[in-house]
Each structure stands twice: as structure tokens, then as C-alpha cells.
């Protein structure tokens, strides 16, 4: 056990001192998909003190090609990603305090989640959550690392409050769903490349070697053999509502917070109840069975199939309505079966 981190401490920029710092740090990782599982495994192997991992989804067969913490049983049993990831991470390194939450992250959740956190890693699949992360990062001066990928393309940027521009400065407008929804597939090396960029910057921040940070927006296309790094410091805006001189943190206001969301590229709509619930899934299963649907159940969620429709109901009352991108249709089905 004693030489567990020897190859990392032999690396001079980390050393014993850096390892000690890593072991005292708390990272919040939002999303446990491709980037989330890659970053989580790397952090846990590196000996992070505490890792909080949050995800709203469950494991499907199409995830196994690149989401490295999951195996076939997780997909067969529809395990929530946060739970399946937590189990695997604790097997990899039992010294790490791994905390998992099966939840959708919006305003209320993020305020709780960031308490005592040293760094936020972005492994989400949407800009609503990223802009929420961006605002909370500015509000509490916690650095965060953007990462995203699609096809053979990926990019990353490290946002350090008070030093770099923030994501809101760079985007100016929220990218429309259609422009970023990932329907063109993804190859795992693109994921791994983004994980490598994010994790290296994370290690620099965790060992407090800020001089070493990249300070550039980096992007690549592995299939087209392209690589780009742009210094975006000039994009920092004094008038930015997230990081400027008079911030209002627009994405933290309750108004921005949606109760329904179309999941990118998934033909799925998520519906959240106004307040999180504590459902008794076995009772609900009985009720739904009487309506003639097919049910299967694990301790975390209920899968309900009725005709052409399929819904997955989580204990906190969230429902994923599969087979539609139409919010009105999804709401209809939700109210028909959930009351």
C-alpha cells in the first residue's frame, strides 16, 4: 500500500508534497458519462481525498463502448450511473471518500454540492448545467474545467475565477440544443483525450501549481489530425454578468431553472416534480402493473413499458420519458401514469 502513489510522487512537479495536497482535496464531478467515468477513475487512482460524483441517468448498453467504469450487468440492471460508478471506484481505491448522488443538478442542488469543494470538473452533456456550474464557480471562487467531445473532436478550457475569462464570456450566447446535440456518435479516444486535458489541469490545480496551467482554449480532431490552442484572455468581459465587475449570476436565479429537459441526442424528455419526492417504488410498481404495463425494478428506479412508450421513474420523482423529444407528449404520458 505504501508505494501506491510512488510513480506519481516520483514525478517532480507533484512529489510527496503534491500527493499530500491531493489527498486533502475535494473534487465535485458533475456527470458520470464518458468524461465523468474517465475523470473519476483517474482522480480516484491518483488518490484524491474526496470525490463527489453526481448524475441523473442510468447505464444503457450504448454507454459501454466508452464509459469505462460500467460493465454489462450495470446496463442489464439499469443501474443509476452514480451508484454503479461509486461501487467500481471504491473497488479501485478504498482509501478515497467517494460520495454519489443520483440527481439532476439545478440551482438548489448546486448550492449544496459545492460546499467545501476545491475544484469542479465538468462532465455534463449540456450547456444549461455548464452555465450553472460557471456561475457557482464565480460566486464561490472555485475553479472549474470545461470539457466536451463529439465524433473525433473535443475541447477543454480551465476557468479560474479572477484570472481567466469565464464560459459566459466565451460563449456570449447559449448554444442552441440542435447545434450541440450529439447525434453523430463518438469514439472513445476523443473522450480519453479530453479526460487527459481535464485531468492534467486538475492535478495542477490540486497540487497548487497554478503557474503550470495551460491558459489556452484547446481543441483537437483526432480523425482529421488537427490540433488548436487559442489564448482567449482577451475575451474576458468587464460587463460579463457571471464574472464581470457587477456579477448577477444569471444562471443561478430560479427563473433559469427548467422542470423539463430534452436530453441531448437521446429521444428522451426528463420531467422533474416541483419538489424532490421520496417514492416507494414497489408500491408504485403495483399500481402501474394494474394498468397493464410491463414493470421491472431495482432499488433505485422503476422501468415501466406500456405499448410504444417507456418511462424510467427514479426515487426522487424524476421521470425519463423515452421515445419522444416532444415535451408536451412527454408531460401527457407523465400525468397519465404519475397523476
Amino acid at each position: 500500500m505504501s508505494d501506491r502513489y510512488s510513480r506519481q510522487t516520483l514525478f517532480t512537479p507533484i512529489g510527496e508534497k503534491g500527493q499530500e495536497l491531493i489527498s486533502r482535496k475535494h473534487v465535485l464531478l458533475i456527470g458520470a458519462g464518458a468524461l465523468g467515468t474517465g475523470n473519476a477513475e483517474a482522480l480516484v487512482r491518483a488518490g484524491i481525498g474526496k470525490l463527489t460524483i453526481v448524475d441523473r441517468d442510468y447505464v444503457e448498453w450504448s454507454n459501454l463502448q466508452r464509459q469505462q467504469l460500467y460493465h454489462e450487468a450495470d446496463a442489464a440492471n439499469r443501474m443509476p450511473k452514480a451508484i454503479a460508478a461509486e461501487k467500481r471506484l471504491k473497488e479501485i481505491n478504498s482509501e478515497v471518500n467517494v460520495v454519489a448522488h443520483v440527481m439532476d443538478v439545478t440551482t438548489e442542488e448546486i448550492e449544496q454540492l459545492v460546499q467545501g469543494v476545491d475544484l469542479i470538473l465538468d462532465a455534463t452533456d449540456n450547456f444549461d448545467t455548464r452555465l450553472l456550474v460557471n456561475d457557482i464557480s464565480q460566486k464561490y471562487q472555485i475553479p472549474w474545467i470545461y470539457g466536451a467531445c463529439v465524433g473525433s473532436y473535443g475541447l477543454s478550457y480551465t476557468i479560474f475565477p479572477g484570472k481567466t475569462p469565464c464560459l459566459n464570456c466565451l460563449l456570449e450566447t447559449v448554444p442552441l440544443g440542435g447545434a450541440t446535440c450529439d447525434t453523430v456518435g463518438i469514439i472513445s479516444p476523443a473522450v480519453q483525450m479530453v479526460v487527459a486535458y481535464q485531468m492534467t489541469e486538475a492535478l495542477k490545480i490540486l497540487v497548487e501549481d497554478e503557474e503550470a496551467l495551460r491558459n489556452k482554449l484547446v481543441s483537437f480532431d483526432l480523425w482529421k489530425n488537427q490540433h488548436t490552442a487559442i489564448n482567449v484572455n482577451r475575451a474576458k468581459k468587464e460587463s460579463c454578468k457571471s464574472c464581470g465587475s457587477h456579477p448577477t449570476y444569471p444562471y443561478l436565479s430560479a427563473g433559469s431553472h427548467t422542470k423539463t429537459a430534452v436530453l441531448c441526442g437521446r429521444n428522451t424528455v426528463q420531467i422533474r416534480p416541483p419538489e424532490p419526492k421520496k417514492l416507494h417504488l414497489d408500491q408504485l410498481a403495483e399500481t402501474l402493473k394494474k394498468q397493464g404495463g410491463e414493470i421491472d425494478l431495482n432499488p433505485f428506479l422503476l422501468n415501466f413499458k406500456m405499448g410504444d412508450h417507456r418511462m424510467v421513474i427514479f426515487k426522487d420523482g424524476r421521470v425519463l420519458v423515452h421515445g419522444t423529444k416532444d415535451i408536451a407528449e412527454a408531460k401527457n404520458l407523465y400525468h397519465r401514469y404519475m397523476g
Binding site: 456527470g31 458519462g33 464518458a34 468524461l35 465523468g36 465538468d122 462532465a123 455534463t124 452533456d125 449540456n126 450547456f127 470539457g147 466536451a148 467531445c149 463529439v150 473532436y153 473535443g154 475541447l155 466565451l170 460563449l171 456570449e172 448554444p175 450541440t180 446535440c181 450529439d182 463518438i186 479530453v194 482554449l217 481543441s219 488548436t228 490552442a229 487559442i230 441531448c264 441526442g265
Partner: peptide, 25 residues
Amino acid sequence: QKENHAQTNVSDGDRIEIVHFVGGG
């Protein structure tokens, strides 16, 4: 700056870097 894209000319030999944001993860 984004607002200057339309009136900024490109000419032979220019060195251009383009990064586009994507959502997937």
C-alpha cells in the same frame, strides 16, 4: 470579437484557428 466576424476579411496566407463549442460529454 464575434460581432466583427462579418466585416473581418480573410486573405491568402492567413493563419486562422477555429474552435467550436460542443455539448457532449
